[in-house]
Amino acid sequence: MRVLRRLLDRRHRLVATAVAALAMGCALLALSPDTASTTVLVAARDLPGGALKASDLTPAALRPDTVPDGALRPGTPFAGRILAGPARRGEPLTDVRLLGPGLLAAHGPGTVATPVRVADPETARLLSPGDVVDVLAAASTWDGAVPATTVAEDVTVLATPAGDSNGGALVVLATTSEQATGLASAQAGGRLSVTIGPRTG
């Protein structure tokens, strides 16, 4: 009987020691910092949109569960790419923020990016990516004004790159191939303007 009691006491001590060690391990694990991280490219400062320079993005380490899908990683060539809209300092940049396949994919199959030059730069400054516009064309003639005609309806603004506005302002639109052809012809023969409608999304 005495031997059995000793064995039971010894077993209880071993169990208690194991439980205490497990509790201590859990406590240390809870207190230890999570060192896992993923490095992505973020805006080095507030960016207005337009063509990116090499100094505009900088690497930053984020927790893996906070990294957005499509985030740009170090080594991704981005200099010269068009940032579709403003970005805040520290914001992770993703593929859908840059003019290209990722951005166009959100507008459905058959969509192309069509740059057009709007004659009035002040009007172009009112535009932001996501705006829906109609594009009007007025032919340049020697015998007086010709009424403007609509050459593209309900097209979405993808980007408004900054640049020299002496010859108007560049706007990049999401269009079909047919609309792109019509816009190119209208731009060659006249001046383009836009009217802004309600956003669809």
Rank of each mutant, 00 (worst) to 15 (best):
P77M: 06
R2Q: 06
P59A: 03
R81L: 11
A124T: 05
G168A: 08
R97W: 06
F78V: 06
T181R: 11
D65C: 02
D120F: 08
R10V: 06
A169G: 14
K53W: 00
T35A: 10
I82M: 06
T150C: 15
P77E: 10
L8S: 05
P121T: 04
P109C: 01
L4F: 11
R2Y: 01
A174F: 05
P161A: 10
D46M: 03
Q179V: 01
A169S: 15
R13M: 02
T35L: 13
A43H: 02
T114Y: 12
S55H: 05
T66K: 12
G130S: 14
P48H: 01
A124G: 07
G163A: 13
P48W: 02
S55D: 08
R125N: 05
P129Q: 09
L183W: 01
V40M: 05
T181N: 07
R81M: 13
G167W: 10
A51G: 02
V3P: 00
I196T: 10
G100E: 13
D154F: 07
T39Y: 07
V3W: 11
V112G: 05
E178H: 09
T176N: 13
A174D: 07
P147E: 10
Q187P: 03
D154G: 13
R45P: 00
E122L: 13
A162Y: 03
A84F: 00
L28Q: 05
R191A: 08
D65S: 13
L170Q: 11
V112H: 04
P68S: 04
R63G: 09
V96C: 00
V118L: 15
D143Y: 12
D134I: 13
E153R: 14
R117A: 08
R2W: 03
A54S: 09
G182H: 06
D46L: 03
T181L: 12
T150R: 11
L136C: 14
T160E: 01
A61S: 14
A21H: 04
L98T: 02
A27P: 05
T176Q: 12
L31G: 08
M24P: 01
A159C: 14
D164P: 14
V15N: 00
V171E: 10
D131C: 09
L41P: 03
E91V: 06
A138E: 15
G70M: 08
R199G: 13
G49F: 03
R117M: 11
A152S: 08
V67H: 12
T156V: 15
D9K: 15
G102V: 07
A54I: 03
L72A: 04
R10L: 10
G50Q: 04
T195K: 00
A186Y: 06
L28M: 10
L14T: 07
R97E: 11
G100L: 04
P129E: 08
L57V: 08
A54F: 02
L4S: 14
